[in-house]
Structures are given as structure tokens and as C-alpha cells.
């Protein structure tokens, strides 16, 4: 009995450690963001703000174009997600349901793309977008983001479409539905949960992307949030506006924290779709 209690207590302690490990860096950002600049740069370090202070939250919008970064990120990530989910659902349907010749080979070729580090695309895309005059244009991020996430989308949706009973499609065909109508009126609406799962994951990945955004968006006003925050840094180590940076970090990451908690089941489902079914 006592032994069981000790075991249970040990388990509880481990869970607490895991949770603290996961959230403490983020919590520290929240605490820092609520301090005044003087308190941030004073010793000894205070673990709770003496006085809750929202000034830095206002300043990033008034003194820096942080609102613009958010709009840019929202626009780019939404467009890329829509494009990615749409294109992958078409391809996944062709592979899973029509079973076209060479479909699975195509899937493997596409999946290989997911294995390459992003840096391999960087220089040629830089050259290409330079020639096309697409620097600072959202298209220069939307197209690459949709493409690098395409393997993931096709993979998840293919495994989902395979589970839809064939009878549903057959019945629709008997009713005189064309191939296109079957796809758009029946399969896609039926797949709404899988499409949502894919969309949430792709959106998070697009929102977080850094390398392409850093390279293709040269003008300050064209920047997305991650690059915008990274560039808030001053010229030297001592000019870094930590109060503003932490406030910006909290604003950018809080929606993600909420999305993660709300949709954790879907995210886990999407992330592990390949791991279990594959």
C-alpha cells in the first residue's frame, strides 16, 4: 500500500517536471514582457513583476510595425495553407481512389521532397524570384510554403481517403454524379475533419517558417512575424529591447498555444497519421 503511494507520488512528480520543462521558457517570456524595462535590467532578477506593465505591448504596435508583420504572416500562412490543402486533396484523391497508374510512385517521389533540408531550394529560388521580380511579394513565400508542405498534405489525405467506403462513391455514380461532382460534393465534404487536421498543421508550419521569409522578404514592411521579431534586435548585445521582444513573442505565440490546446487531438492525429498507419 505504502509502496503504491510512493509510486503514485513519483509518477506525479515526473508529470510535473515534464510540464514545467515544456512551458517554463514560454512562461519566462510572459513574466519578462510584463516587467518595466528598468526592472528587466535590474539585479537581483525578480521572478514576478513588481508592477504589471503593459507598455511594451503597446509600444511594439506604435513604435514598430508589428501589426503589419502579423497581417503579413496571416495572409501568407492562410493563402499557403489553402493552396496546399487544395492541391494535396486533389492529388491524394487521384492516388487513393482513382488509383491511377504510377500513382504510388508519384507519392514516393513527392515524399522525397520532404526529406531535403530547405537550404537546398534557397539559392535557386532566390535567383528565380529575383528574375521574376518577386522579392517582397507574398507570392515568393506562398508558393514555396505550399510546396514544402505538400508531401505532408498528400500523405495524410491519401491515408484518410483510403478509409472512405467505396460504396458511397458507387452510389453517387449510380445517381449520375460525374467524377468531379463525386470529389467536390461528396468526398471533400466527408473529409472535412481530415482537411481541418491538415490545415491546422500546415498553418502552424507556415506561420513559423524563417529561412525563406528572411531571404525573400527584404523590406521591413514585407516581413513576417518570426523574422520581424528576430530583427527587433538592436545593433549590439546591449541595445536589444528585451521588453518589446518578449511582448512580441507572447503575442505571436499565445494564439499558437491556444490552438495547440484546443486542437491537440487533431494535431496529434495529423502528426502521427503516417507513423501508425504507414
Amino acid at each position: 500500500m505504502v509502496k503504491k503511494k510512493i509510486k503514485l507520488f513519483g509518477f506525479f512528480v515526473l508529470i510535473v517536471i515534464v510540464v514545467l520543462f515544456s512551458i517554463s521558457p514560454f512562461l519566462w517570456q510572459i513574466i519578462t514582457s510584463l516587467k518595466s524595462n528598468e526592472e528587466i535590467f535590474s539585479l537581483p532578477i525578480s521572478y514576478f513583476p513588481h508592477k504589471i506593465n503593459f507598455r511594451s505591448y503597446i509600444e511594439i504596435f506604435t513604435e514598430r510595425p508589428f501589426g503589419r508583420y502579423i497581417l503579413n504572416s496571416l495572409f501568407v500562412a492562410s493563402c499557403a495553407t489553402l493552396l496546399c490543402v487544395f492541391v494535396s486533396s486533389l492529388a491524394a484523391y487521384a492516388i487513393a481512389r482513382i488509383k491511377i497508374k504510377g500513382g504510388s510512385k508519384f507519392l514516393i517521389v513527392v515524399l522525397v521532397v520532404a526529406f531535403f533540408p530547405q537550404i537546398i531550394y534557397l539559392i535557386p529560388l532566390y535567383e528565380l524570384f529575383g528574375v521574376l521580380g518577386l522579392f517582397n511579394n507574398p507570392i515568393a513565400l506562398i508558393l514555396p510554403y505550399a510546396t514544402i508542405n505538400l508531401p505532408f498534405g498528400i500523405w495524410v489525405l491519401t491515408s484518410f481517403f483510403k478509409q472512405i467506403p467505396k460504396e458511397i462513391e458507387d452510389a453517387a455514380k449510380v445517381d449520375g454524379f460525374s467524377r468531379g461532382k463525386v470529389l467536390f460534393r461528396i468526398i471533400l465534404p466527408l473529409s472535412a475533419p481530415a482537411l481541418a487536421t491538415t490545415a491546422i498543421l500546415v498553418f502552424i508550419l507556415c506561420w513559423n517558417e524563417f529561412l525563406f521569409a528572411l531571404t525573400f522578404m527584404v523590406k521591413d514592411l514585407a516581413r513576417t512575424v518570426p523574422v520581424g521579431i528576430a530583427m527587433l534586435s538592436g545593433a549590439s548585445m546591449y541595445e536589444i529591447p528585451w521588453d518589446k521582444i518578449s511582448a512580441a513573442t507572447v503575442i505571436t505565440t499565445l494564439p499558437l498555444v491556444i490552438i495547440t490546446i484546443l486542437f491537440q487531438r487533431r494535431i496529434v492525429e495529423g502528426l502521427t497519421a503516417g507513423a501508425v498507419k504507414g
Binding site: S22, I23, F26, F210, V225, A230, A248, T252
Partner: peptide, 14 residues
């Protein structure tokens, strides 16, 4: 799951 969902570049500043 939270650490995975946060932007790497932003948390790197953290």
C-alpha cells in the same frame, strides 16, 4: 506539444 508549435526563431530569442 506547446514547444513544438511555437516558432523556432522566436523562441530562440527567448
Amino acid at each position: 506539444l506547446i514547444p513544438w508549435a511555437l516558432p523556432t526563431a522566436v523562441m530562440a530569442i527567448g
